[in-house]
Design a protein around this nucleic acid. Structure first.
Lengths: 331, 331
DNA sequence: AGCGATTTTGCACCCGGGTGCAAGATGTTT
DNA sequence: AAACATCTTGCACCCGGGTGCAAAATCGCT
């Protein structure tokens, strides 16, 4: 059982050598129609298909791409994974999904991917530190790496990101126009460059409008509970008249957690007392219960670009794409 | 660039043959400490690690498992993917994530996985038809297959599922006890066996309690919009006094969609006028805005079992695990 | 028919590592 | 020191397919 036919066997069945069989499966190779027909017939009978492993060994191309994910708690990962696998498959590639966690760190994952000779490595919004890549175990021969939906300052590792500068300008413009003047910003894991960048632009655009002070609130992780917990802590220690009038959260999950806590535990209404803004346009944010104003990352375009880079159709250079402000009832 | 050191090269650097190098990397092989030390030193210097592709070619074991997913719209996939990748990795395996869609069907995916010589194929809650497996292109030599979070009637293809019989009995008991007597059931893609089974048990348990009539509502797909749309259609054509008093939805996404439409468009209150029940215990259902009563699938246990089957630690035989009723404010 | 041009096919040897066996090295016993 | 047991190492050949080249077959033309 579990015995695959080989080119040699097909050749014997069709009365040709194994090399001719291999040619029959190589588009554009020189072969007679007659021979090809016989071979295909025999191949079908024997249920033959080329062994991709063996092929990869000699061609040095595996058509496999490692996708590293370390934040499955973020539901935004799902649409990214969906688009990414779809596009990769359309390009003849397949994704090896690698879960980075406490038992399997980035260096492990990179070495593993390298050992499996993947054609490329995509870091999907992972929170890895740039120093990770300087690990001495990581030789110079690693497969090319790309970062998706997160910044990369690393030399030679291009990224495709949603332009947080444009995004936050749009958001701040919108909030200013709506009359909000006392902004707060909730970060998740604040040490990450993406977080810092968003925070930075948020503050910068408010400053340009004459608002100097930003209230900082930080959640432990990117989860609904943590968003709620940090909002709770803030509201507890701040009297109603001192509170922010709009709370920008680093992503939709934090925003939903915060919004729910604000409403249900403090009787504060959204957006009348405090407006809430998220980031990502997570599907459920659109539901009437939330009506979350947010900023949509151009997921499909981002994925298209990264796949073009991976397949070499496009030069590997960091690209920022503008997203789209989605205004709903929370502001 | 992108040149990996080979065992032969390491051997030359360490003054031994390539076979000795290979042994140095094979646990339990016979080799002197001295030789091993020299080899490891040379290996580190040359940044050598065994080429897993080449190894797989001769051992016929790839340590790769294909995971087929065709329903990325269901957020429940994310925790399953997370646990699954984590467990597989802990067992030394890696997941190839294959997206089944209009451009890449099940047969394609299976053939692709086979060509890549994966050790096993896991169908993650996919809506494939049993006939798919009878496709003539699928030979008898396919890798072993397992179904996760969905039923399998297929001979030789074991499944790990959440026991819908126990689950629905718990749900119906709970609803009956709360005093509901006019139940409705909302299915997604109703042709699927999982859906039919849940529907069947739901009706059966009500019958045992003397309630014969179940109102059937069906949504096109498993999405919030479709759940909302089918609830809308139902409420439109049914006068308040004729309506169900509890609506059981096949999963949480449908339930949330239905609940939101019921509340916001018809001013019907949940649970006073109509109670709503979901299935899966999707994380956001816990938020105060929804407070969705639901049934939690034992995700981690299910994944543990399927990984044990994949690794051969457990016999491949369909297993049903009981889940856990989670009562919240929607009932 | 005969010659050269072109296409098709077979072959030796490669990709990087794994296996079983036998030769070589080391160690133990008398 | 010889004889034997044991451990370590090298080797031939395997896994399944890919490459470049040369032999063989086919084609076109005079």
């Amino acid at each position: 059982m579990r015995k695959r036919a080989t080119a040699k066997e097909v050749g014997e069945a069709a009365g040709v050598s194994k090399w001719t069989v291999i040619r029959a499966f190589k588009p554009g190779a020189s072969i007679t129609d007659e021979a090809k027909r016989k071979i295909m017939e025999a191949a079908e009978k024997l249920n033959y298909s080329p062994n991709l492993l063996a092929r990869s060994l000699s061609t040095n191309v595996t058509h496999q791409v490692a996708v590293l994910v370390d934040d499955f708690a973020n539901p935004q990962k799902l649409p990214f994974l969906e688009s990414l696998t779809e596009r990769l498959q359309a390009a003849g590639l397949v994704a090896m999904l690698i879960n980075i966690n406490n038992h399997f760190d980035h260096v492990h994952a990179l070495l593993n991917a390298d050992q499996r000779l993947v054609d490329a490595i995509i870091l999907l919004g992972t929170a890895f530190r740039d120093e990770t890549l300087n690990d001495r175990r990581l030789g110079p021969g690693m497969p090319p790496m790309f970062v998706l939906a997160r910044d990369s300052q690393i030399e030679g590792v291009p990224a495709v990101v949603c332009d947080s500068e444009v995004g936050l300008r749009d958001i701040v413009d919108h909030l200013y126009e709506r009359g909000y003047r006392r902004p707060g910003f909730m970060t998740g894991a604040s040490a990450l460059s993406t977080a810092l960048k968003r925070r930075h632009h948020f503050a910068e655009f408010w400053r340009q409008k004459g608002v100097e002070h930003i209230v900082d609130i930080s959640a432990e992780r990117y989860s609904r509970e943590d968003g709620g917990a940090s909002a709770r802590e803030y509201l507890k220690k701040t009297s109603p008249e001192d509170r922010v009038d709009v709370l920008m959260c680093e992503n939709d999950i934090l925003a939903i957690g915060a919004m729910e806590t604000i409403r249900s535990e403090f009787g504060v209404s959204v957006p009348e007392d405090i407006a809430v803004v998220g980031f990502d346009n997570y599907e459920l944010g659109a539901t009437p219960a939330f009506g979350l104003t947010t900023y949509e990352q151009p997921c499909r375009e981002m994925v298209d670009l990264i796949v073009e880079m991976v397949t070499g159709k496009r030069e590997g250079e960091t690209i920022s794409l503008p997203g789209k402000l989605v205004v709903r009832s929370s502001t």
